[in-house]
Design a protein around this nucleic acid. Structure first.
Length: 104
DNA sequence: TGATTGACAGCGT
DNA sequence: CACGCTGCCAATC
């Protein structure tokens, strides 16, 4: 049983709609700690709730697909996100169009 | 049980 | 505009 914070992160990430992405900082903030972005990454890496938690929809601060499952694997997930409707700009997500608007 | 690392983010130089 | 340092939370050794 991981920390309650991890569970909160899991619930937040779970709520990310298809075609959009959220940053670690955003998820961490919604989880209750804006500075716990690293802990969010930890939770995603271990992903004890996979595949319930779409960790591929969680990106870095600039929408950079960092981590996940290997550098090469990012390419495939990038296409997957595009299939969901996420707009990509080169090696990063177009946050201007596909950043998850949590305030809705 | 204690110390270090890790899928990050923000501010300063 | 690019690079470096610090702060935070959780997990692993």
């Amino acid at each position: 049983m991981p920390a309650p914070f991890t569970q909160r992160v899991y619930e937040v990430v779970k709520q990310i709609p298809a075609g959009k992405v959220a940053t670690y900082g955003q998820v961490a903030a919604l989880a209750g700690s804006p500075k716990a972005s690293r802990a969010v990454g930890m939770a995603m890496r271990h992903n004890p709730y996979a595949p319930v938690v779409p960790c591929h929809r969680v990106v870095g601060v600039n929408g950079v697909l960092t981590g996940f499952s290997g550098k090469d694997g990012l390419v495939g997930k990038r296409r997957l996100l595009e299939s969901e409707g996420v707009q990509f700009s080169g090696e990063h997500v177009d946050l201007s169009r596909s950043l998850w608007h949590t305030e809705l």
